[in-house]
Amino acid sequence: MGKIKIGDIEGEADDIKNLFLDLECDLSAYINAKPITDKIPKYWLYILTPIFFISACLLAVGLLDNNWSKVVTLLLFLILGFISLIIQHNYKDWRITTIAFLTGFCLILIGLNIYTPEQISKKIEEEAVKRIPTSE
């Protein structure tokens, strides 16, 4: 084989490989390589989000009978789970995932006529005001 150089280490490929194996070091960690992870295609978000919104609207306006309302409610929670999973898997940021989940959950609550949009807005405002640091 030929000589190779990895970072500050230079030598024969087999020697470098054996060095890392003997010292139980991880080559990818040494060169700061991030592991390759496949992302879920974004088109799933483009498909699931409108389906979620349309289903929530159907539930909110009351076009469905009692049995179908239960099915659509279960569908909404399932889609919300998938959307949250895709966002977390692709972006690995709990803040974004939490915001997306809470937004979807609020839409479900509005669709089920548990809260009105005004009540949800008021609750969010109250929570935000509570979390603002005071200068006392």
Rank of each mutant, 00 (worst) to 15 (best):
E10V: 07
E10R: 07
G11D: 00
E12N: 09
E12G: 12
A13K: 09
D15R: 06
I16K: 00
K17A: 14
K17V: 12
N18V: 09
N18I: 08
L19Y: 12
F20W: 01
F20K: 01
F20G: 00
F20E: 01
D22G: 09
D22A: 15
L23T: 08
L23S: 10
L23W: 08
E24Y: 10
C25N: 08
C25W: 13
C25D: 10
D26N: 14
D26E: 07
D26K: 07
L27R: 04
A29G: 10
A29V: 13
Y30P: 13
Y30V: 10
Y30E: 11
I31M: 14
N32L: 14
N32A: 13
N32H: 12
N32I: 05
N32R: 11
N32V: 07
A33V: 08
A33M: 14
P35R: 14
I36V: 15
I36P: 12
T37G: 12
T37H: 14
D38P: 10
D38R: 15
I40M: 01
I40G: 02
P41V: 09
P41W: 05
P41D: 07
L45E: 00
Y46W: 12
I47Q: 11
I47V: 06
L48E: 01
P50C: 05
P50D: 03
I51P: 03
I51M: 08
F53P: 05
F53I: 15
F53L: 13
F53V: 15
I54T: 03
I54F: 11
S55V: 08
S55H: 10
A56I: 04
L58A: 13
L58P: 12
L58V: 04
L59Y: 01
A60D: 11
G62Y: 01
G62N: 08
L63T: 11
L63G: 11
N67R: 11
W68E: 06
K70F: 09
V71M: 09
V71I: 12
V72T: 01
V72P: 02
T73P: 02
T73Y: 01
L74T: 06
L74Q: 02
L74K: 03
L74V: 06
